[in-house]
Design a protein around this nucleic acid. Structure first.
Lengths: 205, 205
DNA sequence: CGCCGACTGAACGGAACAGTTTACAATCGA
DNA sequence: TCGATTGTAAACTGTTCCGTTCAGTCGGCG
């Protein structure tokens, strides 16, 4: 996913990416037509094809950008709260919030749908998103500060458990279009529930 | 999803469905072409169109069938093990096994990809799959036998937690194509982990 | 000014696709 | 054996789509 666009000739590059992003995330790869992308980006098709050799390259460029965003979001998780349970609650809230956000869902949807056709996309999504988040969280769980309160042998396993608890029925209902946008109070309650279960398993006693 | 095919005229119906199933689950809705489906089903395109008015109806018929299968799988969960923790382990194993199976993944993938375009499919998947499984599990958790061992106020919430624990990083890696088919021992270990966390939260003490 | 690179709009070729039609063959009940 | 139902192969229609081409516009710069 590190293939830079061969040359960034002109000033409309960002515009093309933005339009493509919107259409691809809305329609998927097969569903998106290059004509629609060009129209949506406010750019002629000729211009679009001067930046990218074909539809697939454009798609990969868009997804690569989204993965970078995910990566940044993961590394910005805030562990420096006063209190370990509070820190966990904060992490759970921001994770759930991202998972249920329109953007987070759209990326997930497209990656699921296209991971077969473009294996590198599935890989890149996993590495920059869940894997990165897990690594961050695992690092925190292994820190002396966390270990003072938590009894964790396998931080990776524990991080997996924590994230799984965040990925609850709520997320499934959003993905499947059963629920609409979530109430912040609902997110907070879900985070609470996740932290309670996690502490029940891992709190020192 | 209850719209029956208008009439089941002839003997090739099942053949058509089988072919369509294979292609749709492999390629998604947009990716699947009717010509390929017909060829794959060993049937002429004219025959196909004598059973179904259009591609969309065929797609809905296939997914409707898959949902029925899911439903049956959910209702067949086995709760009558000697021991509650053993029962939970068995449930976790069969859930994880299904989630990671080629079939389970394919249905999930297609539903995620098409839930936008066909909202009723997202709904139907959720109701016949996760919702149904949750209801079964919730019923078990509320039963006197389980309540003797478990301290559960909100069985639905607890069922959600249990299922979330089953839907771990393992599933994500499968969906994203990072991992291949899972080793049964790995599934058993994941089930173990899920049950341990669940019991830590809900076991009476 | 005159030049040049970026961009446009529109058209086009060729392919794929959904769905229809037609002319013909297989199957089967009576 | 007959006739009706069911299926087939292949061509065909009309649309959509990707990717290319080209004549021409625009804005900046020497």
């Amino acid at each position: 996913m590190n293939a830079q666009p061969p040359v960034k000739k002109g000033r409309k590059y960002d515009q093309v990416i933005a339009g493509a992003r919107e259409v691809f995330l809305r329609e998927g790869y097969e569903g998106a037509s290059v004509d629609v992308i060009a129209r949506d980006a406010g750019v002629s098709k000729a211009t679009l094809y001067s930046y990218f050799p074909d539809k697939q390259a454009l798609f990969l460029a868009v997804l690569s950008g989204e993965c970078d965003i995910q990566k940044r979001a993961s590394t910005e998780l805030e562990f420096r709260e006063r209190d370990v349970p509070q820190a966990l609650h904060g992490i759970a809230e921001s994770m759930i919030g991202f998972l249920l956000s329109e953007t987070g869902l759209a990326i997930f949807r497209v990656c699921v749908g296209e991971a077969q056709r473009f294996p590198e996309i599935g890989r890149a999504f996993y590495e920059t998103g869940p894997r990165m988040g897990m690594a961050m969280l695992s690092g925190f769980l292994a820190s002396p500060k966390a270990q003072a309160v938590l009894d964790i042998d396998d931080p990776d396993q524990a991080a997996d458990t924590f994230i799984s608890l965040c990925r609850s029925d709520l997320m499934l209902r959003r993905i499947m279009g059963v629920d609409g946008a979530p109430d912040p109070a609902v997110i907070s309650a879900a985070a609470d529930e996740a932290v309670r279960t996690f502490l029940a398993r891992y709190a020192r006693r």
